[in-house]
Design a protein around this nucleic acid. Structure first.
Length: 267
DNA sequence: ATGCCAAGCATCGCTTGA
């Protein structure tokens, strides 16, 4: 008789969380890992160099980690509970001169996990917005290759795109923001059209769902949020999608990141 | 048009984020 762990149909919980500074929020991160018990976690905005990544504390909490840090800004990591993530890529192809730590890819228990932190792009127009759109093109090119490989893949992370008006509260405040520009939305739509499934929207087609609430202007208290953290599934994984949730309560805690964790469960 | 919050890095202000 097979054990639960060896059964290929065993469920798998995969989360993405923009932690907004991993060292400053380490106690909150460990607390969340303990209560939520995700099998795989994609973290963004580590805001720490490779040398100061808290690998030891995470290991003690039961998580193996792969990371690509950067001093003060950006930085991404993949955590895994039962196995060491096997890193397949430490950057997005297409620009070897890109110095920003925004992409990390690893295989975990038969699933290819792509952890990404897409550039914010503000102010727009301007060089930062150009960088965002160029990064998006590189992602679209690479994502097509991942689909063509036929591997089970999750693209998880902070995409810095509000896909539609249903993914933001009723407001005009963000109309000039890079997160809502037609170019940003068109790029995200083109990515989906390759054959990816937006997991949260597949299971919650119409509900207002947000993953980020600005610290300013009482936006958390007003539930004035944006949905910008996404998990996109390749076709074989989309068939295994069982649940998809935003852990909204985590955002309301003392000293929380301005993002909430988002997770999916695969059967 | 401006400040509003928060973190990091470096001082008591600047940069960046979204």
């Amino acid at each position: 008789m097979l054990s639960q762990r060896q059964t290929p149909t065993a469920s798998m919980k995969i989360a993405t969380y923009n932690i907004n500074g991993i060292n400053g929020r380490l106690p909150r991160l460990l607390e969340w890992l303990h209560e939520s018990e995700p099998d795989v976690v994609c973290l963004q905005e580590l805001k720490t160099s490779d040398a100061t990544f808290p690998a030891e504390a995470l290991r003690e909490a039961g998580y193996h980690a792969a990371w690509r840090g950067q001093r003060a800004y950006n930085g991404v990591a993949i955590l895994a509970r039962h196995a060491e993530p096997v890193v397949t890529r430490r950057g997005l192809p297409g620009d070897v001169a890109d110095p920003e730590s925004r992409y990390l890819e690893a295989a975990v228990e038969g699933v290819l996990i792509a952890c990404l932190y897409l550039p914010n792009g503000n102010p727009q127009p301007g060089p930062k917005f150009d960088y965002k759109l160029a990064w998006f093109e590189r992602l679209i090119t690479h994502a097509q290759g991942l689909l063509d490989s036929g591997a089970p893949v999750v693209l998880a992370g902070d995409f810095n795109v509000v896909p539609t008006d249903a993914d933001i509260y009723a407001t005009r405040s963000w109309l000039d923001d890079a997160l809502l520009q037609p170019e940003s939305r068109a790029a995200f739509a083109r990515l989906l059209e390759q054959g990816w499934t937006d997991a949260v929207r597949r299971l919650h087609p119409t509900a207002p769902i947000y993953t980020y609430w600005d610290y300013k202007r009482n936006r958390w208290q007003r539930d004035a949020g944006l949905r910008i953290d996404h998990l996109l599934l390749s076709p074989s994984l989309a068939q295994r999608l069982k649940r998809a949730e935003v852990e909204k309560a985590v955002r309301g805690r003392e000293g929380a990141s301005d993002h909430a964790p988002v997770w999916i469960e695969l059967r």
